[in-house]
Design a protein around this nucleic acid. Structure first.
Lengths: 198, 198
DNA sequence: AAAACATATGTCAATAGTGACATAGCAAAA
DNA sequence: TTTTGCTATGTCACTATTGACATATGTTTT
């Protein structure tokens, strides 16, 4: 099984969905921690069906093309449940902006500061969207988000990861930009025993 | 140019290195934000050389096999400098643990709590390693880490990103584990106007 | 009427990345 | 002296992922 397979099973465990629906989910909130295009999803669904983890039925629609709605099978649910508590296989993080930070000593300071200000903004905007969803979840599903056996708790937990991630990322971007512009607190003590003497 | 190409150029901009050296860097601290195996690095070096971004010279060693030491060219440095302040091409984040969190409502609570405790520990250990490096950098290179045109500042900046990332990640893991065990603060207000009445 | 757009499902070639296989020199340990 | 281990460089098959191409239905906009 691929991780994408588990991602699909995880979505189907909550509700029956078409390939198109799954694609939308993978662009939306779920896509913030696992994403895939339809060109990867359709073949994966076929594979999952071949292995007996999902089944589909064709649903005719009035004002739209027909669709294949996929459901998770008992075997699929079983496999998914086992996977959930298994330690994740380590995946290397690859972050282009951190790589750029590592090379920033070569750059024009003004352009570099602008870059990190822009990225700070991007992450703050994402954070604002997450926080809106969180507030809605807390006010509309305040009971469920505290019950670990509820899908609402699970969705809330991954959302909180997104919030923490974006908060920290935006902060870091701000610190880098400030440092380049000489606005940040100087970091680290100077070498031994030379403290604020001025 | 691939991002791996820029990663290699970024390392060579600081010092001349062999393919083997580069592989070690990509496993070490640099590997925490951009990693690659030697099977990807050697062909990429050949490509970079073919495009005129690096050159190599064979260096004979007394007690080891010969090595090819790569240096960045003027053209390579030029290209790298331009790239640094360019906005990064968006890469989807894929985090298996967050995906597992999204499915955690299906899991046995004890096993799930154990999983997140283990991950919390992993991230705290990584954090401790980063902090040790940071402290060393601050005490041994306190001047340079504050100068944006110094490679020390650049390395320090990416290290700080690692520290923030691991700090936040460990916290989140702890919160998830606590929540599953019923130890966390209940999140969110209950629906309208029902406050701590007990 | 034509164009643009959303729904819906698929294939395919190319790229990025991994893991295994392969080879070789030299050193230290068993 | 054989094995183990680190240095050093390379190739190759396979998997994961992307972006482009392809097709069809039905609705809304121009």
């Amino acid at each position: 099984m691929t991780t994408l397979g588990y991602a699909i099973l995880g979505l189907l465990a909550q509700e029956a969905l078409s390939g198109y629906d799954l694609t939308q989910r993978m662009k939306g909130r779920v896509g913030n921690f696992w994403s895939a295009r339809h060109s990867q999803i359709y073949p994966e669904l076929a594979r999952l069906e071949g292995d007996g983890y999902v089944t589909h039925s064709v649903v005719a629609q009035q004002d739209r093309p027909d669709k294949k709605v996929y459901e998770i099978t008992a075997a699929g649910l079983e496999t998914l449940k086992e996977w959930v508590t298994e330690p994740p296989s380590p995946r290397p993080t690859r972050d282009e902006l951190v790589l750029k930070a590592y090379c920033v000593w070569l750059a024009d300071p003004e352009k570099a500061a602008r870059l990190f200000r822009e990225e700070e903004l991007r992450h703050e905007e994402q954070l604002a969207r997450y926080e809106k969803t969180r507030d809605w979840m807390e006010s509309e599903h305040g009971e469920e988000v505290n019950r670990p056996d509820s899908p609402w708790f699970a969705g809330y937990a991954s959302l909180r990861r997104g919030i923490g991630y974006e908060t920290e990322y935006a902060q870091w971007c701000r610190w880098v930009a400030d440092s380049i512009e000489g606005k940040a607190e100087p970091s680290g003590r100077r070498k031994k025993g030379r403290d604020s003497k001025s």
